[in-house]
Each structure stands twice: as C-alpha cells, then as structure tokens.
Amino acid sequence: MRKDTVRAGKLSNGQAWMEVEFCPSWGFIDDARRFVEAFCCHSRVPAERATQIAMAAHELLQNAVKYSEDGRAGVKLRIDPPKDWVDLVVENRCTASAAKQLKVAASRLTKAADPLQVYVELMHETARREDGSGLGLARIQYEAQLELEFAVRGRAVSVRASGPLALREQPARKRA
C-alpha cells in the first residue's frame, strides 16, 4: 500500500511546486486546503489569490474523494511567478457513472462563455434538485477565476484548474 505523501520544492527558475497524495478522507481535505493556502502565501502569492487557489483545491479534492474508486486522490500545484501562472491538478480513479457525469458537467462548463452565467444557472438547478450539481466546479471558474480542463480516460480522471496569478476585477453585479 502506498503511503500518504507531501512533497514540495522551489526551482531555480522561480517556480514553486507541491504535491499531496492521500487516501480519501474528508478531514484531510480541509488540511490540504490550508496547506495549499500557506504554500501559496509562502510563494509570495497575494493573500486574496492564495485563498481562491486553496478554495479551488478544496472543491476539486472534495469531488475526487467523493467519487474515488480505488482509495487514492492527489493534488499537484505549481506556482510560476515569472510567468504569472498557477496550475492545479487533481487526479483520481472514479466509477464509470461518475466519469460519465463529469464529462457532461465538463462539457457544459468549458463551453460556457460567461462563468458567472453558468454558475447562476447551476444555482437555479440546485434549488430544485438533490443530487450532484457541478456547483463546486462552477465556483472554481467564477470565484477563483481559473479555467478548467478535464481529461477522462476510462475511469482515470484528471481535472486541471489554471490561470494567471494576478486577479481580475469581478464582473459587475447584474440586476434582474
């Protein structure tokens, strides 16, 4: 059995990276979120951005743990200040039905021109349904301002959330 692992380092080109792999545990997800946030701050990412990246890690890990099939989930984070870029990848193996569900959610989210619009649409659907909603992924796209990429090969799932380290102004609030 593989052990839980945490590895982190800094490269000579200014990049900082960390990897966490663990057996699914809800309690560990929050620890991982705090670790990611602390790591970002240590890598001189502004506190506001660090919080958003950590939130994204939490949401991705939550999905990975919820749908993990073989008892493993992992997160990889790469901070690249010279290129103003953050790259967050969460990988796991999930059930066939969960992989199918993810493909549907992924298609909708990645095709959306406006992250806020699809987020609000999902909230309307959430108000009416009981099962999984994709709200966590929409949250990453809008609140954390990270683009999502999905790779599903059989039951192996990889979700990448990436984007600039610098923040953009959130779109103005829309009135009905």
């Binding site: 958003q52 806020l116 909230m123 609030r173 829309k174």
Partner: peptide, 18 residues
C-alpha cells in the same frame, strides 16, 4: 479579510438580486 466571501456572496446576489 475573508477573501472567499466577496465573490461567493456576489454570485449569490446575482442568483437572487431582489
């Protein structure tokens, strides 16, 4: 200072602006 709250609640106010 809780940086996640502003975008999160901002989105919620777009869901139900009234």
């Amino acid at each position: 200072e809780r940086h996640w709250q502003k975008p999160c609640l901002g989105a919620l106010s777009c869901f139900s602006p009234l």
